[in-house]
Amino acid sequence: MPRVHLTSRNRTAVQTLLESMSLPPLDDLIACPHCDTLHIERALPEGGSARCVRCGIVLVTRRSDALVQMVSLACAAVILMMAAISFPFLDINAAGFTNETSVLSAIMAFSSGNGVPVAIAVALFIIVLPLTRLLALIYAVGPLVLGHKPRPGARIAFAMTEQLRPWAMAEIFMVGVAVALVKITGMAQVTIGPAFWAFVTLVIITIFNDRIMSRYTVWKALDLTSRD
């Protein structure tokens, strides 16, 4: 069977054909965030999920507790972040000298020279941006979970959590820590502090939350609650 290809000759013809076909209302269409394939939304059974027919990514999951789970994980992550930046992260001991670092003091320690921009970048990528994402998510989705109307700017806040995703690099920082530990073990004795484990847990929770987070569910919930 010959396939229809869009050439400049038949492009207008295809366009008029598309326009004459009755497309469902825009609100019922879902475009796959990965490959832009258009799908028509169907009501899903509780606990069900729908995948893109072309690339297989999860489009919609229907779990009544999805939003609750998202917000509670985000709250847990914020608390862990507080612990991770204030408790001792790593202790080093060499020839009688010791140095104890928390993430916060590590950033404060740079006060001159090349360290300043590096410290600012590290602070942004591993503390400020991840924290902003978490707080924006709680701000946008939290009121919905409690049954309130969304706060002003909830949409902007949620759009921001999505846009900041590539710039929050806590998990990359953990790989960096692993490399640094290997480099240093020949030189000195290193003890791992409680903040290290808080950070590991934080990274795992964040990755898990980003995985289960269904953008579509959040937007739908924001649409429904702001309508009435």
Partner: peptide
Amino acid sequence: MIDVFVVAILSALVQLNAVATINPG
């Protein structure tokens, strides 16, 4: 970004006065 983080951690951690110090280049 891994290598930048490695440098940041090493230079924050290894500040042992005379014995050893690491600074970012």
